[in-house]
Amino acid sequence: MQIPTAAASGRSRLLTSGVALAALSLLLTLHAVPSAADDDTPARGTASMGSGVLAHEGVHGQPAATDRTTQTEGVDVSSHQGEVAWSTLWNSGVKWAYVKATEGTYYRNPYHAQQYNGAYDVGMIRGAYHFATPDTAGGAAQADYFVDRGGAWSKDGRTLPGVLDIEYNPYGDTCYGMTHSQMVGWIRDFLDRYKARTGRNAVIYTSTNWWQQCTGDYSGFASTTPLWIARYASTVGPLPAGWTFHTMWQYTSTGPVVGDHDKFNGALDRVKALAEG
């Protein structure tokens, strides 16, 4: 019988250790914890007007065939649409547009200039909107961020007041972890700062279901704040508490040309009146 030398025993231990490490590595690979890339949560900045409504309240809507009141066709766009063919939209009957400018205090739409100026250049009345993330910064801070990065208003007859897009949280808790009173306070802080900075009351974009769930159906903003309601159906449906009529209606997320399509509750002269203040 050959007695192993010390060197041979060391080589044997190294070989055994190497095999064990290889097996452990394979086991960890087979049972790896999913990385952030495997998470279904979208990246910050990718939210657009109505993205949460679509996810929480049903399928794509159709044009409002049963609503026969005088309305003016509009569109809202974000970075998802890239460079927009505004002349095509204009020729299809779209006369007003809203463009995403900002989100939270961390994101600015890289296509904002092309979209915002392009709508204006073809003759549309246009404005900007801010996607709110109340869990990342205060209302006043987000209003400042918005105004400083494309959300300001000018009295040129062609610029609509800014919009606070407040809806389902695409990145986490539906109500951003806030109580009803906290959410109402956050919205008030945004609206007050926007008014102080621009002289205009911002528009609120929301859905009735979200508003009821996350503000307790608060009615205190209705007397001063125009309402843009999201509902992908053939009628506007019930409105949040306090509002007896809507100013704008996002009725589908599958527009005939590009972007989400909307109807202004009135003829084109009413769109101009809102722009003029």
Rank of each mutant, 00 (worst) to 15 (best):
Q2N: 14
A7K: 12
A8E: 15
G18I: 02
G18L: 10
V19C: 11
A23Q: 10
S25C: 14
S25F: 12
L26T: 13
L30Q: 15
A32M: 04
S35H: 01
G52Q: 11
V53M: 03
E57V: 05
E57C: 06
V59F: 07
H60M: 09
A64F: 01
D67T: 11
T72E: 03
S79W: 02
Q81E: 15
A85G: 04
W86T: 10
E103P: 02
E103D: 02
R108W: 00
Q114G: 02
N117S: 11
A119T: 01
I125L: 04
G139P: 03
G139F: 03
P161G: 09
I166M: 15
I166P: 04
P170K: 02
G172A: 14
M178G: 01
M183R: 08
V184I: 11
G185L: 05
D189V: 04
F190A: 00
T198E: 06
G199C: 09
V203E: 06
I204Q: 10
Y205D: 14
T206I: 07
W211F: 09
Q213P: 11
D217Q: 08
F221A: 12
L227T: 09
A233M: 01
V236S: 10
G242E: 00
M248A: 09
T254W: 04
V258L: 07
V258K: 13
K263I: 00
D269S: 11
A273T: 04
